[in-house]
Every structure is written in structure tokens, then in C-alpha cells.
Amino acid sequence: MAVTCMLSLALFWSSLLCLVPSSLQDGAAGNMDRELQHILQNYNKVLSPATRDNQTVLVKHGITVTRIVDLKDDVMTLDIWQDMEWTDVRLRWMADDVLRQINIATDLIWVPDIVLYNSGGISSYLHPPDTRQAHVLYDGTVFVSSALRLHVWCGNANGSSPVDQDGTYTCNLKFGSWGYDGFRMDLHGRMDDVDLSSLSEHRQWRVKSTSMTRNVVLYSCCPEPFLDLSYTIQLEPKYGPC
């Protein structure tokens, strides 16, 4: 009886699909394929999306901490989602009611070279490379979100421990461009703070506070400013100082 019901449902849904014209089923995919080929035909992913009118690319950056994996000496290991948003005028097209957004593999387009400056080890992606997609709107807005496992060096320049006398563990995650100065890439936070909405509870530590600071650094050698975003995470032990 159950098998008969399942076959009947399958035939019912198949008959409904037959009522949908194939032109409607294939139209969106065909439009997307043609638009993607047109966009990428003369696209050079080595060049930034700077224009003659505006040589500076505005990049918005944010992190969502999902898990504190380990704290060992001066190194914190944690899982995050890194979000980046910018505009690339070369990826614009005339929008219609069907095609207002497309996904493009990140290895086909220019992506900001944002790195963790104070890395305490090799960071890694938590998802396979072929799953990393950029969400591109018709107006050229690009959004990329990547799941990363970071190893962050939390030590201080003077050699002092990141743990204070009350047992609070303070770690700064400093992100910035590897190759662009502040005149060519204007780095800002997508949010005012660290996103903890998806954080899994740790058995030993809880988050005491977080903050985000945008830093502009000038060196005597160079007229260009150098920008970074510093995300500060303070953890306190659940059961008293360690």
C-alpha cells in the first residue's frame, strides 16, 4: 500500500512538471549562462576593480566566530566565517525580473587579499575550494563568505602573556590587505563588532567582551596610509582563574 502511494505521488508531481513549459525551465539558466560568459569574456582577475574616476576600492570586512577550538600558550585556534563585500563595476549587467543575482566561483574574479596579520600558524578553509562562491548582484556588488579555521598569535609585543591576573584571556585578530595601501583599498568593518550569534559554547571559556577597531598607520618612509581592522576577543574562565 505504501509503495503504491509513493508511486502515485511521483506520477502526480511528474505530471505537474510536464505542465511547466520547458522554455521557462531553461530560460533562467540560459540567461545566466549567457550573461556570465559576457561578463567574464574580457575580465582580468589580476586587476582590482578600481576605475579612472575612483582609484580606491571600498572593502567591507566582518567576522562571525562560530567556535573557540583551543587555547594553547599564546595561540588561539578558532573557527570563523569571514565576510567581505565590495563593488566591481566590471561585473554589472542590465537587470530584469529573472536575473538579478548570479553566483561566480571566487577563483574566476578579483577578490580582496585580506589576510590575518598576526597568524600563529597556517589558516585553512573549512569547505572545499570548489564550493567557494561569490554572490554578485546586477549593480556589481560582490559578497563572499568563507569558513576558516584560524590560528591567532595572541601574545604581546613586550612578551607578556595574554592572560591577566584575573584569568581573562585577551586576543586581537588583526586583518588587512597584503598588497594594497589605504589609497588603493579602503578597508572598513561591515559591523561595529564581532558577530557571536552562531558561537558554540566552550566547556572552559566564555566570551567576556568583544570590540572592533579600524586602524590607520602612517610610516615615515611612505606617504600612503596602511589600514587594518583589529577584532578584540576577551575570554574568561567559567570556573575561576586558570
Rank of each mutant, 00 (worst) to 15 (best):
Asp74Phe: 05
Asn158Tyr: 02
Gln234Ile: 09
Leu108Gln: 14
Tyr138Gln: 08
Cys18Leu: 13
Leu17Arg: 06
Asp192Phe: 04
Val89Asn: 02
Cys154Phe: 01
Asp53Pro: 01
Met191Arg: 12
Tyr43Phe: 05
Ser8Asp: 12
Pro129Cys: 04
Asn54Tyr: 06
Pro241Val: 03
Thr141Leu: 13
Tyr117Lys: 12
Gly121Pro: 14
Ser220Pro: 07
Gln204Arg: 07
Leu196Asp: 09
Pro49Trp: 03
His135Trp: 04
Val207Thr: 04
Tyr180Thr: 02
Ser8Pro: 00
Val194Ala: 06
Gly179Pro: 00
Arg132Cys: 04
Phe183Cys: 00
Asp107Cys: 08
Asp130His: 13
Arg214Val: 03
Lys208Leu: 14
Cys221Gly: 14
Pro225Trp: 01
Gly179Asn: 12
Leu9Asp: 13
Val46Leu: 09
Gln234Asn: 13
Met191Pro: 00
Val65Arg: 04
Leu9His: 08
Pro225Tyr: 06
Thr131Ile: 05
Asp181Glu: 05
Phe175Gly: 10
Arg214His: 10
Val20Ala: 04
Val152Met: 07
Thr232Lys: 11
Gln234Glu: 15
Lys208Tyr: 10
Ile114Asp: 01
His202Asp: 13
Ile39Lys: 15
Leu36Phe: 03
Thr170His: 12
Ala95Val: 11
Arg90Ser: 10
Ser145Asp: 11
Leu36Gln: 15
Gln37Cys: 07
Lys238Pro: 05
Val217Gly: 01
Asn42Val: 13
Glu201Ile: 10
Ala28Lys: 10
Asp97Lys: 07
Val115Ser: 08
Met76Lys: 02
Pro241Gly: 04
Arg92Thr: 15
His151Tyr: 10
Ser48Cys: 10
Glu201Tyr: 05
Val217Met: 03
Ala2Asp: 11
Phe175Tyr: 15
Tyr125Ile: 05
Gly155Met: 00
Pro49Ser: 03
Gln133His: 03
Leu196Ala: 05
Asp74Pro: 00
Asp73Arg: 14
Leu227Pro: 01
Asn54Pro: 03
Leu218Arg: 14
Leu235Asn: 09
Arg184Tyr: 14
Thr64Asp: 14
His127Thr: 15
Val65Met: 12
Lys238Gly: 06
Ile233Met: 14
Gln234Pro: 05
Leu19Arg: 15
Ser230Glu: 13
Asp195Trp: 03
Thr210Leu: 06
Arg67Val: 02
Tyr239Val: 13
Asp73Gly: 12
Val20Leu: 06
Leu126Asp: 13
